[in-house]
């Protein structure tokens, strides 16, 4: 297999997308994925990859993605929190990679909570 990627690609990505940095950690829209032992065992890394793929595919650049440790709700892992400015923080549980596109489209973009996957809400 010929080598496709090399580090110079990163220079190109940097030049092509000057606005990539809008997703700085200070960004207001946020997705947080639980990545403790419990999350990892339940498939959180695959959910995170699905989130990154979906954001990249849709060209969404104003959402910061973060990971966090165990928050004590191990039985509901993988957990994904969606934070939109001025709205309650919503925690989704038992997430699967195939749930990701719907939650990003309906909640992250359009602001409609996907209730059937919600396990908690902080006002």
């Amino acid at each position: 297999m010929p080598k496709i990627k090399n580090l110079d690609d990163l220079r190109k990505i940097r030049e092509e997308s000057k606005d990539l940095t809008s997703a700085r950690s200070g960004g207001k829209k946020k997705i947080i994925v639980g990545m403790g032992t419990c999350g990892i065992a339940a498939g959180a890394r695959e959910v995170l990859t699905a989130i990154l793929t979906e954001l990249d595919k849709r060209g969404i650049k104003d959402v910061a993605v973060e990971t966090t440790g165990c928050i004590g709700m191990c039985q509901y892992e993988p957990l994904v929190d969606i934070i939109r400015p001025g709205e309650p923080r919503v925690t989704y549980g038992n997430m699967k990679p195939e749930d990701v596109s719907r939650i990003i489209a309906e909640h992250m973009i359009n602001g409609n909570i996907v209730w059937e996957k919600v396990i908690g809400r902080t006002d």
Partner: peptide, 10 residues
């Protein structure tokens, strides 16, 4: 930029 989905996937 290490937080950008495009870069992480790359």
């Amino acid at each position: 930029l290490l937080k950008s989905p495009k870069v992480v996937l790359w």
